[in-house]
Computed example of a mutant assay.
Amino acid sequence: MKSAGLVRAAVAQNVPDKPAAMAALPSAPAQGVSPPSMRVTNWTDRPPPPPICKPNPLAETGERKILLDLKRREAALDAWAAALDRQEQELAATKAALRRQIASLKPLAAKLAATKAQHRSVDTARWNALVATYAAMEPRSAARIFDGLDPAVVLNVLRRMNSRKSASILAVMVPRKARVITEKMAGMSPATTTMKAAVLLPDGAP
């Protein structure tokens, strides 16, 4: 009995007063105010990776745009340089082909020049023989032959002949033929001479 009374006395001392206990309790939240949320952080989770999206070319600005522009210009310059190299190679090949053609044509050109010189020498020798023949003739006899020859032939002979001998032959030739030969020797064409005569002669002149 005595022990039971001691236990009740100890319990009564440890029990706090009711008003003090009520004051110690947390007060209820005010109306309209939500209590702070309690977020549990799981430290084992990793943040999600950022989204992968393609760059928009229209949005390229600043240093990136300058670098891309420089790369495009570099590619264009490389292409231009390659085209120039190809053109240079083609020109070199064309020049080499032309040099080969010229080298192959040089012997032919030399042969043609030699043939032309030979023909000129033969032609000169033939005309010199004709000049010597007519120079040895009497002027009147040569004039009668010249009157029936082509004026071009007579002109070539008289041009190679001594001026005194040619003058004596022209003096006894037919006047009309001698006039034509003289005009040709002076470098005047018959048509030009006829036109000048028509301008100088008065109307009704023979």
Rank of each mutant, 00 (worst) to 15 (best):
S3C: 09
A4N: 12
G5L: 15
L6V: 12
A12E: 09
A12F: 00
N14Y: 04
P19D: 15
A20H: 07
L25H: 04
L25Q: 13
S27P: 08
P29T: 11
A30M: 11
A30T: 13
G32I: 06
S34K: 09
S34M: 09
S34T: 11
P36G: 06
P36W: 02
S37N: 05
M38A: 11
R39E: 04
R39H: 04
V40G: 06
T41E: 04
W43P: 02
T44W: 05
P47E: 10
P48H: 12
P49M: 11
P50N: 07
C53W: 07
C53N: 12
K54P: 01
K54Q: 01
K54D: 02
N56V: 04
A59E: 14
E60V: 08
E60G: 03
R64V: 14
L68I: 15
D69N: 12
R72N: 06
E74T: 13
A75Q: 04
L77R: 05
A79P: 01
A82N: 10
A82M: 07
A83M: 15
R86Q: 10
Q87F: 08
Q87T: 13
Q87H: 09
E90A: 15
A92P: 01
K95M: 08
K95T: 06
R99A: 15
R99N: 13
Q101E: 14
Q101A: 12
I102H: 05
K106A: 11
A110Y: 01
A110I: 03
L112F: 02
A113D: 11
A113S: 09
K116P: 00
Q118L: 12
H119S: 10
S121N: 09
S121T: 08
W127M: 13
L130T: 04
L130Q: 07
A135P: 00
A135K: 03
M137V: 03
M137F: 01
P139N: 05
R144H: 07
I145T: 14
G148C: 13
L149N: 08
L149Y: 09
L149M: 15
V153N: 09
V154Y: 00
L155N: 02
N156V: 06
N162P: 07
A171W: 00
V174M: 05
P175H: 06
A178S: 14
V180W: 00
I181V: 10
T182C: 02
E183P: 00
E183N: 10
M185P: 00
M185N: 01
M188N: 06
P190F: 04
P190Q: 07
T193Y: 02
T194G: 05
A197D: 10
A197Q: 05
A198M: 08
L200A: 15
A205G: 02
A205K: 05
P206R: 09
